[in-house]
Design a protein around this nucleic acid. Structure first.
Lengths: 222, 222
DNA sequence: TACGAAATGGAACGTCGTTCCATTCATCGC
DNA sequence: GCGATGAATGGAACGACGTTCCATTTCGTA
């Protein structure tokens, strides 16, 4: 009687959307390593095999999950005062997203050409011509921005992998700082010289500074 | 009688150096996914358990392998005409290394603070003060450079993962280009506009262009 | 020559992604 | 109304992996 061929078999029927939603919950609660087809099946009260009817494999699952949260993050952008501010805003929004959900950064760095990656390129590229970048350099400039942002994402995700429990970032920094301080001064004079800056730096500010460096470089092209 | 406690039991005795060497061979020949403790044991004509006497785990093995090839690559640097040329040379040497051995890029992006990562920061940092970067910004500048370089490394490694057989890079680009051309013009106007640049770009030139953007930005700080 | 520690290598464990397949259920032609 | 068809399900099973365990061998030393 019902015309929809996809009429649900039960109220809580499986669907790609529901699977991705559950996957995101697991990733947010317990991180990268906790996303398992068994854990996912358990949370959805089904078998692991059933999931494969809706999702090709684990990579596709992570791609869909990353695309979901990235699209949502990028959509939240109001209009900025200047093209430069617009690009900064996109970068910082992505930084904050990956700071909160490191698994996005890890996956994005591993598979850059997924839908989420395209959305990032598009969001970065729009304000670009207004910034004054010559049109023939646009490809090089967006990819440079994306490379930097995704690189920072990967490293942030790597940092987050060791110490998940909350306020231990300072301890981690202190540990790295003492490790650097113990380095051979003959082989690592430069690192020894910036130990203090390293110990006191703020990740978000560091990211913003690097982004500004690229933007300054772009402005010299105009 | 012999004073060395570590005297080899046989001529082809196991050692960390020999294990790392064999691991590098496997990685170079068959890529990331082929490095297995079983495959490694088979190549060394021993058991998987014996390897653990010399190496803590797989991460440590990859870290040692990456450190080996990165140190070797960085050591090959002659003196450059200018500090700017020196930094460009370090970047391009690393790009070529990772282009030839994508597994290095994949591991470096996943674990940035290993010995290899420190060597990269040191190599980038030395020419920096001569470039005119204010000393209080040195930390931000090196990490920005390293973030960009390691980001490009990760993406290059990701590209290499799909099509290992030699001269198919052009085909890959063409495939991505037609995919972009088929994108919804309403949602992706910018990407549609740079499809041609994307189809014709050269990876190494693109990398160099992004590096130059950052270096220009640094020079505005002086 | 006998002993203890370094070193070895193969078996075994637990977990993962994925495949397979018997079974269920809603739909559609008769 | 009623089987037939195919979408959808879920649990068992497969093969491979990283890692652990342990019986055994080998060597320096007493």
């Amino acid at each position: 009687m019902s015309k929809a061929p996809g009429a649900p078999r039960r109220a809580d029927a499986l669907s790609k959307a529901r699977i991705v939603e559950a996957a995101i919950e697991i990733l947010d609660e317990a991180g990268d390593g906790a996303l398992t087809f068994r854990a996912l099946a358990s949370r959805l009260a089904t078998g692991a095999g059933a999931i494969y009817w809706h999702v090709a494999d684990k990579t596709a699952l992570l791609t869909a999950a990353a695309s979901d949260v990235v699209d949502h993050t990028l959509a939240g952008g109001g209009d900025a005062a200047s093209p430069r501010a617009a690009i900064q805003a996109v970068g910082l929004r992505l930084f904050d997203l990956i700071d909160a959900r490191p698994w996005v950064g890890a996956h994005l760095a591993r598979e850059p050409l997924q839908p989420a990656g395209l959305a990032i390129l598009e969001a970065l590229g729009r304000p670009l011509e207004a910034l004054g970048a010559p049109s023939r350099a646009r490809f090089e400039v967006v990819t440079a921005l994306a490379t930097y942002i995704l690189g920072a994402a990967a490293q942030n995700a790597a940092n987050a992998r060791q110490g998940p429990p909350g306020r231990v970032r300072e301890d981690e920094l202190a540990k790295v700082a003492t490790a650097w301080a113990g380095l051979d001064p003959k082989r690592y004079p430069f690192l020894r010289g910036i130990v203090d800056q390293m110990a006191q730096h703020d990740d978000r500010e560091q990211f913003r500074a690097g982004l500004n460096l690229i933007l300054r470089g772009v402005e010299t092209l105009a």
